[in-house]
Design a protein around this nucleic acid. Structure first.
Lengths: 341, 341
DNA sequence: CAAATTCTGATTTACGTACCTCAAGAACTG
DNA sequence: CAGTTCTTGAGGTACGTAAATCAGAATTTG
C-alpha cells in the first residue's frame, strides 16, 4: 500500500519529526540526515497525501481577481466562471475576492493593483492593460513577493509570474487561414474590427492576422483597423458605416467583443453580399449568428479554463511549487455551426 | 467559516452519530429527524470535505479499462493517458487495471467484459464494438450493479451508464463543412476513409459527413466508403489504388486511424493535384502533415480528457452520486497548422 | 403492561499530515 | 571545561469525516 510518513521514518531510520522537518523544509536537519530521508522518499515512492495535508494545515489561499467592469458577454462569462470558482472555493481552500475596474483604464488598474497588495493576498490575477503605469504597479506587486498572474490579456515586460490566456498570435493566424480559405480565392476588401489597440491580446491578434493575410492571401485587400471599444452600439455604427463606404467587403475579422452590434449590422446586409465573418468568443449572440449563418466561425477561449488555471498557478506559486507549463496551456477552440456544444 | 458535521449536529439539535447516519444513508433514523438534519445541511450550506472523507474512509476505487490492442497513435495516446491516470492514482484513490483485447473483435470484447466482472471492480470502462454479443455482456455487467462507461466509441442500446467520447455525428458534419468550404465550390470526387464500419464512432462520422456533403455541397461527388482497418499499410495501399483509379480526387475525409499510410500515399501525389484532406486525431504524423500542408485540418478528441472524465464518472456512479453532464462533455478540437499546441 | 423493536446519543478510534513542545545528546565555542 | 548552538527523538494535538460500540430512550407490538 501507499507509503506514509511513518514508513519513510522507519525506512530512513529516523523519527517522524525529522521526516516532517525534511518534507516541509523546516530548519534543523543535518545534510546527511536530510539525504537519508530524501532517499527513503524516492525509494518508497512516497507522495504526500494532499487531502490529508490540507486538512492538517487548514490553509486557505486568499486570492484577488481584478476584472474590467466591461459589460460584454465574455466578461460576464468570466465573472460567471469566477462565481463558480467561488462556489467550490470551500473545497479548493481558496477565498476569492473580486475587484472591478473601469475597462481599458491603465491608471485605475494600477491603483487597483496597489490596493490589492494592501490585503496581502496569497496571489493576484488581473486582466492587463498593456501600459507603463500598470507595468510599474505589477512590479510593485512582485516586489512584495505576491504571485501575480495575467488573465486573458498579457502584460509586456516580465513583471508577472504567469499568463493564463490563449496564444493570441496563433488565434490571429488561425482566423486568417479560415477567412482566406473560406473566401476560396475571391478578391475584395477585408475589415478588421478590434476593441482597443491598448490591450495586448487585441494587438497581437490583429498583427498576426494582418501578417498572415498579406502573406498567404494577397488577393484580399486589408482595410485599416477599426476600434469598437468592445461596445455593441459603437460597433454597430462603425460596421454600418463600413458597408456604406465600401461595396465590396468580402470578409470581416472581429477580434474583440461587442459582437451584438456586429450581428445587428450584418442583418442589414443583403444576403448575397454578406461577407465571410470570423469572430471571437462563443456567446449567446455569436452562437445564434453561427447557427443562422451570419458568422462563419468563432474562435473561443474558455473563461472557465482560464480562471481555474490561474487559480492553480497562484496556489502553486504561493507554495513555491513549480508549474507544469504544458498543463496550463489554454487552447483556442474553433466553433463552426456544426460542432457547437 | 465552512460548516462541519459538528455544526450540523448543533444546528439540527441532534448528535454527531445521527448526522453521520443521515449523511451516509445509514439506516436507523426516523423521517422527521432525517428532515431536521437535511434542513440544517441546506441552511448552513454544508459541503462534505471530500479530502477528509476519503481520508477517513480509506476507500480506493478499483477500475478496469478494456482497450483494443490496436497499434496506432491514437490508441497509444489513450494508453499514455491511462498511464498518467495510474501515476496519479494514489492521490485519486483509484487502482486502474488495463485489459487488452484484439481490435474490432466483438466476441473477445464480450469475454473480457465477463472476466472483468469477476474481479468485482468499482467500475468498468471500455471501447465498444457495436455488436449484439457486446451488448449482452454489457447488460450482464450492469445487472451486477457495476458502473459501466463506454470510451471513445459508444454502444447502441442503453446498456451503459455513460459515454465518454465526442459527438461523432457533429465531427462528421464539421468535417463536411470544412472540406466543402475549403473546396470553394470546386467540383470533383470526395473519398471517405474509415477504419471499420463495425464501430459506431466511425459509422456515425461517416453517415453525418455524407449526409452534410450531399445536402450542402452537391457539386462534390462522394465515392463509396473505404475501410482501412486503421492499419497504415492497408491504408497506403487503398489510397494508392484510389488515385490510380480516379484522376479528379479533390477531397479526402479520413475518419479513422492509420494516417501514416494516408500521408505516405499523399506524398506520391503531384502538388497541383493534391486534394483537401481532413483527418482525425492529432498525432506526430498528422501534426507533421498539417505543417507540411498535406493535411488541411485535423479533428481531435483529447484522450486524456476522455480518460479523466471516465474516471470521474465511474467514481461518481460508484458512490451513487449524480453526474453533471455538461461538465463531462468531450469537445471536438479543430486544428489547423496555425493553432497547433 | 411487559417485551421487543426502533431510534438516538455519547464516545472512541482511525485516516495521513502538519505543527508544536520538551528533552537530551552531539558538536561546537571561547 | 562550562556554556552555547545544532540536531534529533518522543510524544502530543489538531484537521473533518467515517465507522463502530454501547447504552439508554422512545415507540410499537403482542
Amino acid at each position: 500500500m501507499k507509503p506514509t510518513v511513518h514508513d519513510i521514518a522507519a525506512h530512513a531510520g529516523v523519527s517522524l519529526a525529522t521526516v516532517d522537518r525534511v518534507l516541509n523544509r523546516r530548519p534543523g536537519v543535518s545534510i546527511s540526515t536530510r539525504e537519508k530521508v530524501d532517499r527513503a522518499v524516492s525509494e518508497l515512492g512516497f507522495v504526500r497525501d494532499v487531502g490529508a495535508a490540507n486538512l492538517a494545515k487548514g490553509r486557505v489561499y486568499p486570492l484577488t481577481f481584478i476584472i474590467p467592469s466591461n459589460d460584454n458577454s465574455f466578461m460576464r462569462g468570466l465573472r460567471h466562471a469566477l462565481d463558480e470558482a467561488k462556489a467550490s472555493s470551500v473545497l479548493e481552500r481558496t477565498a476569492i475576492r473580486l475587484v472591478d475596474v473601469p475597462a481599458f483604464d491603465a491608471v485605475a488598474l494600477a491603483r487597483a493593483l496597489d490596493e490589492a497588495v494592501a490585503d496581502a493576498p496569497a496571489g493576484i490575477a488581473f486582466v492587463a492593460v498593456d501600459a507603463p503605469d500598470v507595468l510599474a504597479a505589477a512590479e510593485r506587486v512582485v516586489a512584495q513577493g505576491i504571485p501575480l498572474v495575467t488573465l486573458v490579456s498579457d502584460l509586456s515586460g516580465a513583471a508577472r509570474d504567469h499568463y493564463a490566456g490563449i496564444d493570441n498570435a496563433a488565434a490571429g493566424r488561425t482566423a486568417a487561414s479560415l477567412l482566406g480559405r473560406f473566401l476560396g480565392g475571391q478578391a475584395g476588401k477585408v475589415a478588421v474590427l478590434a476593441g482597443s489597440m491598448l490591450v495586448r491580446d487585441h494587438r497581437e491578434r490583429c498583427d498576426a492576422f494582418s501578417d498572415a493575410m498579406v502573406r498567404n492571401f494577397p488577393k484580399a485587400q486589408l482595410l485599416p483597423v477599426l476600434e469598437g471599444r468592445d461596445d455593441p452600439g459603437t460597433v454597430e455604427q462603425i460596421i454600418g458605416a463600413l458597408f456604406a463606404d465600401h461595396a465590396d467587403i468580402v470578409g470581416i475579422y472581429s477580434l474583440g467583443a461587442g459582437n451584438r452590434g456586429l450581428v445587428r449590422a450584418l442583418e442589414g446586409v443583403a444576403e448575397d453580399k454578406r461577407p465571410v465573418v470570423i469572430a471571437h468568443e462563443l456567446t449567446e449572440t455569436t452562437r445564434a449568428a453561427l447557427q443562422s449563418g451570419l458568422i462563419d466561425a468563432v474562435l473561443n477561449q474558455d473563461a472557465g479554463h482560464e480562471v481555474r488555471s490561474a487559480i492553480r498557478v497562484l496556489k502553486a506559486k504561493a507554495d513555491g511549487l513549480p508549474v507544469i507549463a504544458a498543463q496550463e496551456r489554454i487552447r483556442i477552440d474553433i466553433f463552426l455551426k456544426d460542432n457547437l456544444p
